[in-house]
Design a protein around this nucleic acid. Structure first.
Length: 856
RNA sequence: GCGGGUGUGGCGGAAUGGCAGACGCGCAUGCCUUAGGAGCAUGUGUCUUUGACGUGGAGGUUCGAGUCCUCUCACCCGCACCA
């Protein structure tokens, strides 16, 4: 019987669908369950964005999750392994703009395609829990969650300079801007001042940092990336006074009157060296300071120019810093000295207060600026000579440690001491306080696009901003005909939909026409899986308590910040709202590497796409699944190799042949003697050396595969071990192990074990061979256990080294005493000749491994 | 610039401080076959081959280093004027 993957795979896929094999009910309601079920495991892969069809990256992602899910089921866990679609978003909308067809149509077609592909891959998914974010039964609850955030003051509207993508015709979150360009289309992002909706994620900055401790296993680099993104720095807020001058407020300034500006600094210890002051071009104070003053025109011209410069250009570090003197001065709060105020584009309005104190001696950027504009440089931290020229002038800024100098009564303090002392001193005068600053900005969630969940807010002339009452949810997307963006959401043009009545006063009201960022949809989908059928709540609390948090989350590293941080934020808010009982949604995270082909990421434009459908048609799902995991460590990027899958296909063919032949020979299968496979224990008194070798190999491979799959996620080495086992079985059969009953029993055990270990990777072949062996549902079998009696061979071959070089080998009993091993080793002819006439200095014996004799 | 990572045969990759190159691909030779992008067997790091050398490079620790430490080079990823 030839291995025919197509035939057996469709056969078993049908069985799994008809028998609802992988549909896992929730625990009985009210079964007294509180909290996570001891037998509950939640394995989740990031759900796909349905843009056409699944690619090899998806195949790898979902296969990996499937292997883990099937493995844990074998270990006796109830496994929640659901699937859904992140179905709102620009891709479908752009198709709609081109074709004029509703985006939902394209989306549903893509979903049907990916659905079919995943089923054809044999992924063990509970399809009864499918979640699709663009369907009203889902986005109703996205809107409901928005309203909960809104009620808590965590969703708010404000006017702010935002990132505008001129091509996508919508605003973007900070996280979606990569090097000044739109992450979707690479267009240069422009700064635009607009009124937009935000989530107050900055309120959670500290907890997002702190709760990394609550995670079990996340890749270090993902944590680091989030940490950097949140960008916490500690220091002080320091108030600088700017004396008013003639023309500021009426014509006669009150003597001593000032306007105060706060700056954030991480280096309050260097305050004595603050020789100038800089405002960002966008800083509102700039206009006030120069109004009616001599330099007004010049400064405002500079401001206009700076604001017209693209974000990338401005951010480019190579670019020379520019700036302009305002003609005004600020008072250094520690020295009382007047320092000039500049406007410069190296100061960013988005960070801190948009104003800085400049300490050129100890800050590289300030130093460069001071050099260019001939500003004073005062050393206040003792600086090593390498940073100075012969005359003792600083040649570059020194940011390192040192002792304070030129700093009045703080002289002699260390940097760390001074940071505290200077801040305290100023705090007592009301001029400073300790402060923490974050790089993280609030999450801009509104989008001027059609294909998203409408923001459930109304604007009434009388009542103002009014949330849509919960019982009126969902706010359905209206059907429209023109999807093209025009700088406003296409929804704004749907007059019938936009114009509505105010639920509070009954008067006319207009709907918010912006929709939500799709990352809102994906920030809670993992909760919906617990009870997607509930139409009365977003999720069933008891079911969520039972299944969540997610035990193993798997996806691409490209979501390290966006999706993963937003989901963490959502979970914390829901925790604060009392809606869930945990603060971190994903206990363990695994980020898989990408699959490349011909040296590049697969993409249609490069023409280097390997189609999963074609590969499945040619080699079968089992081969494709096994190959994507055999390519290399799952977390590494890997290059697709057509000959590689060929090799795996041949391997599966060899297993197939090996087992079917054994069935024909009556070694395994209904006609073979023996009981249930799980009971096979090997009770022959003394196996022969050949039998023992196979038994030992089997147990060792069970042990390795269990650790590799269950703990290390090293599927490639697990498969390699199974290949070794299969090779050894083949060799043993060739050598005549099947000659007698004992040998046949050993072979039977080894073959059955091979099939069971291979089954998570190649579930169809596993099911088919298991059936041919006369057994039932392999997916419900317990995972094989190694037999402790057969974890090591009776004798081991040890290397014998002289001075670290292998000179001979010795065969000894596995637990031979060191003394005997040494004696045997020394008597070896290949060793004795090196010992002759030398002094033995040291003897090292590593049991079971090697002997090292050090001679001189 | 800062942070993180990776460098091992012709290729993908294995190796709790203990015999470097498991497993797979490719290649070679032979067998089988009407045929082979099938199967089987054997071999396959390099070299000046009784042996020596080999994990990007240079040092170090150790009886012993791909693995630990120091320096260095190359490449990749993330952040990037963050005060």
């Amino acid at each position: 019987m030839k291995y025919n993957p197509e035939q057996i795979e469709t056969k078993w896929q049908k069985v799994w669908a008809e028998e609802k094999t992988f549909i896992v009910p929730n625990a009985e309601p009210g079964a007294g369950l509180k909290g996570k079920g001891a037998d509950a495991t939640y394995v989740l892969e990031m759900f796909p964005y349905p843009s056409g069809s699944a690619h090899m990256g998806h195949v790898k992602n979902y296969t990996m999750g499937d292997v883990i899910a099937r493995f844990r089921r074998h270990q006796g866990q109830r496994v929640l392994h659901p699937m859904g679609y992140d179905a709102f978003g620009l891709n479908s909308e752009n198709v709609a703009i081109k074709t004029g067809e509703p985006p939902g149509k394209f989306t549903e077609e893509a979903i049907a395609t990916i659905n079919r592909q995943l089923r054809r891959l044999g992924v063990a998914i509970d399809w009864s829990r499918e979640v699709v974010t663009c369907r009203p039964e889902y986005y109703k609850w996205t809107q409901w969650l928005f309203l909960q955030f809104y009620k808590k003051g965590l969703a708010y509207k404000k006017e702010a300079p935002v990132n505008w993508c001129p091509s996508c015709q919508t605003v973007l979150a900070n996280e979606q801007v990569i090097e000044g360009a739109c992450e979707r289309c690479d267009s240069l992002v422009a700064a635009k001042k607009l009124t937009q909706w935000f989530f107050r994620i900055t309120d959670y900055a500290e907890r997002l940092l702190r709760d990394f401790d609550k995670l079990e296993s996340w890749p270090e680099r993902v944590v680091t990336m989030q940490r950097n993104w949140i960008g916490k720095s500690t220091g002080a807020d320091v108030v600088f006074a700017i004396p008013l001058v003639r023309g500021d407020r009426g014509d006669a300034p009150v003597p001593g009157a000032t306007v105060n500006v706060t700056v954030f600094t991480t280096r309050p210890d260097t305050l004595f060296g603050a020789t100038f002051f800089v405002l960002a071009p966008e800083h509102p104070l700039v206009e006030d300071l120069v109004r009616g003053q001599e330099r007004e025109q010049e400064v405002m011209l500079y401001v206009a120019k700076a604001m017209g410069t693209s974000a990338i250009e401005r951010a480019s570090i190579e670019k020379e810093k520019t700036g302009i003197f305002t003609g005004r001065y600020a008072v250094n709060p520690v020295t009382g000295g007047k320092i000039p105020i500049f406007v410069a584009d190296y100061v960013l309005m988005e960070y801190g207060t948009g104003a800085i104190m400049a300490v050129p001696a100890h800050d590289e950027r300030d130093f460069a600026f001071a050099q260019k504009y001939g500003l004073e440089v005062v050393e206040v931290i003792s600086t090593p000579a390498e940073f100075k020229d012969e005359s003792g002038r600083l040649t570059s800024a020194y940011a390192g440690d040192g002792v304070l100098v030129n700093s009045g009564h703080f002289n002699g303090l260390s940097k760390a001491e001074a940071i505290v002392k200077v801040t305290e001193w100023l705090r007592d005068q009301g001029k400073a306080d300790f402060a923490v600053n974050y790089k993280l900005r609030d999450w801009l969630l509104s989008r001027q696009r059609y294909w998203g969940a409408p923001i459930p807010i109304l604007y009434c002339d009388k009542c103002g901003e009014v949330p849509v009452p919960e019982d009126q949810l969902p706010v359905l997307l209206p059907e429209i005909t023109d999807y093209a963006p025009k700088g406003m959401s296409p929804l704004a043009a749907a007059e019938q939909w936009v114009n509505t009545t105010c639920p509070q006063c009954g008067g006319p009201a207009r709907r918010e026409s912006d929709t939500m960022d799709t990352f809102v949809d994906s920030s809670w989908y993992f909760l919906r899986y617990a009870s997607p059928w509930r139409s009365d709540v977003a999720f069933d609390r008891e079911a969520v308590d039972y299944w969540l948090p997610v035990d193993q989350y798997i996806g691409g590293v490209e979501h390290a910040i966006l999706h993963l941080m937003y989901s963490r934020f959502f979970t914390k808010v829901l925790y604060d709202l009392g809606l869930v009982g945990f603060e971190e949604p994903f206990k363990n995270l695994f980020t898989q590497g990408m699959i490349y082909h011909k040296g590049a990421k697969m993409s249609k434009s490069k023409g280097n796409v390997v189609s999963p459908d074609e590969m499945v048609a040619k080699y079968g799902a089992d081969s494709v699944r096994s190959y994507v995991l055999f390519m290399g460590p799952a977390e590494s990027d890997a290059e697709w190799n057509d000959q590689g899958i060929e090799g795996i296909y041949r391997f599966l063919g060899r297993v197939w042949r090996q087992v079917t032949e054994a069935v024909d020979e009556g070694i395994v299968g209904p006609s073979a003697p023996g009981g249930r496979p799980a009971d096979v224990a090997f009770d022959q008194e003394t196996p022969t050396a050949a039998e023992r070798a196979v038994l030992v190999k089997t147990s060792q491979v069970v042990q390795k595969a269990t650790v590799d799959v269950g703990q290390r996620f090293r599927f490639n080495t697990a498969l390699a071990a199974i290949m070794e086992l299969n090779n050894d079985i083949a060799a043993a059969r060739t050598a005549g192990l099947a000659r007698n009953e004992a040998g046949r029993a050993v072979l039977r055990h080894a073959l059955e074990t091979t099939v069971r270990l291979l089954e998570p990777f190649a579930p169809h072949m596993g099911a088919e061979l298991w059936q041919l062996m006369g057994y039932g549902a392999i997916w419900d079998e317990p995972w094989p256990q190694p037999d402790p009696r057969f974890l090591a061979l009776e004798t081991v071959e040890m290397a014998v080294q002289i001075n670290g070089k292998v000179r001979d080998r010795v065969e000894v009993a596995k637990d031979a005493p060191t003394r005997d091993v040494l004696a045997q080793a020394k008597s070896l002819p290949g060793v004795a000749k090196y010992l002759e006439g030398k002094t033995l200095v040291k003897e090292v014996v590593v049991p079971g491994r090697l002997v090292n004799l050090v001679v001189r």
